[in-house]
Design a protein around this nucleic acid. Sequence first.
DNA 1: AAGTGGTCTAGACCACGGC
DNA 2: CCGTGGTCTAGACCACTTC
Lengths: 241, 241
Amino acid sequence: MPQNTVSDTPAYRRIQLALQKRIEAGELQPGDAVPSERELARNYEVSLMTARHALAEMEREGLVDRRRGAGTFVALPKIHFNRLASFTEQMASRGLPARSRILCASVVEGEQEAAARLSVPPHSRLVKIERLRQSGEQPFAVESCYLPAEEFVGLLSLPLERRSLFSTLERDYGIELAYSDEEVDATAASARTAELLTIHAGSPVLRIRQAIFSTQSKPTVYVIGLYRCDRHTLMIRRFRR
Amino acid sequence: MPQNTVSDTPAYRRIQLALQKRIEAGELQPGDAVPSERELARNYEVSLMTARHALAEMEREGLVDRRRGAGTFVALPKIHFNRLASFTEQMASRGLPARSRILCASVVEGEQEAAARLSVPPHSRLVKIERLRQSGEQPFAVESCYLPAEEFVGLLSLPLERRSLFSTLERDYGIELAYSDEEVDATAASARTAELLTIHAGSPVLRIRQAIFSTQSKPTVYVIGLYRCDRHTLMIRRFRR
DNA sequence: AAGTGGTCTAGACCACGGC
DNA sequence: CCGTGGTCTAGACCACTTC
C-alpha cells in the first residue's frame, strides 16, 4: 500500500505535527509521557519504524526526551542558546520592556569596514541606522546597523521606530535571516558613547561586531554594538563535540 | 539471525567508524562520493535501513552531505563554531604556539561564587588553579579554574604544567565534558591583572565566566578568564532557528 | 513480567538527479 | 534510463526500566 494517498505530508511528519500541537496546547506538559512507539504505530496505522522515526527526530530537535525502558517524555521548555534574535525578541523573552531611540538613519558612503563585512565594494552606499537601546528608561546599548543601500531602497521611509528591523527585513523584503558571526571584545567608551549610555568616559564596554547572513549565506546586515556591562552580560553555550 | 554475534558495536556504528576512518585517512576527500546505501548494505551484509541509519546520522553530524538522486558525499571540513575547546586545542587549531604558566595551584575554601556555580555548599574545599596563558612570549589571558576538591583528589600532584586540564580530566578522572555556559562582559583590569597581561591598569579586558558541565549535566569546572582585547577576540556564531 | 526504546531484516514504492 | 536518497511495512530480538 502506498504510504500516502491523500496528503503529501509524510506519515512520520504528521505524527510529529500532531504531538507538537498537543504540546503547544498544553495538553501534554513537560515531563508527561508521550504515547509510546507501539501506541503511535497502532493509532496512526503505521509501522513501528515510522513511529520510531517521528519520535527520534523530535528527540534530536530537543522536543522530547527518550529513555530506554521507560518511555518518551515531553522535554523541559527549550532554552534557546546562541539564538540569533532581534533586540525586541531578546527583551520580550526576558519579560523586559524594550525601547529604542533612533539616533541617525541615513545613507552613508566610504564606511570601509562595514562594506568589507557586507562583501560590497569599499565605497558602496550603505544604509546606516544608529539606535540607542533601552530597557524602560535605562539605556544599555548603542547599535549601528549597516545594509547595502542598493538592495534596501525605501528602507529609511519605513516605520523603523515602531517595528523591529528583523521583522521589517523578513516581511517587507522577503529576506530570511539564518545566522550571524560575531566578534566580541571589550573597549573603552568614547565620550559620546559614555554620554549616551550615561556612564563615565573610558569605562569598559562590551563590543559586539555582528555579520548577519541570510539563508543563502549572503552577508545582509552588519551591526556594531556597544553594551554597558553593569546591566548586561552576553550568555553563550558551547559544546564539546 | 541476531544482528550482532561478535562485537557489541551496532552494525550501523561499525559502518560509520569504517567510513570515518577512510575520511580521516584521506582516502575519501571532501566532495568524493561515499558508497551508496545499497552498496553499503551489500558490503556489510546489512539491510538497507541499517546502512541508511549510518549515513543519516553522519549527515546530521555534518560529516557527509546527502543529495537525493545524486548520492552521499564527504562534507567540507567542518568549521567548529561555539566549540568548547581547551586553551591548548584552541591555539593548536590556529597554528599558534601555546604556553601557560601556573601562578597558583592550591586548595581554597570560602570562594562562594565559584562554589555556587559548581552547585556545592558555599564553604566547600575547591581546587583552584590560576594560570597565565601565553602565545609564544606574549601573555594574553589570566584564567582561574575551580573544581570540587573532594572529587579531584590528587589533581594538584599531576603534571598540570605539561598537560591540558581537559585531557587530564578526561583521561585521569574519566570525565567527559559536554558543554559550557559562559557569561561574557567587559571589565577594567586590576593592577595585578594589568601587570600580568602587561597592559595599563584600568584597560578594558574581556571577562568570561564559564561553567563547564559533564555529559551528566553536572557542573565540573568553573573558570573565570580575563582576556586582553588587543590581540584576542571571541568568535561566536548564532542561529536564527 | 510487562512495557519501553534500540537495533535490525528483507523487502517495497516514490521523487529526483544525471547521463 | 538507472541509480540515488526518502519513506514505509510487518514483523523480530535485545537491553533496559518499572512494577
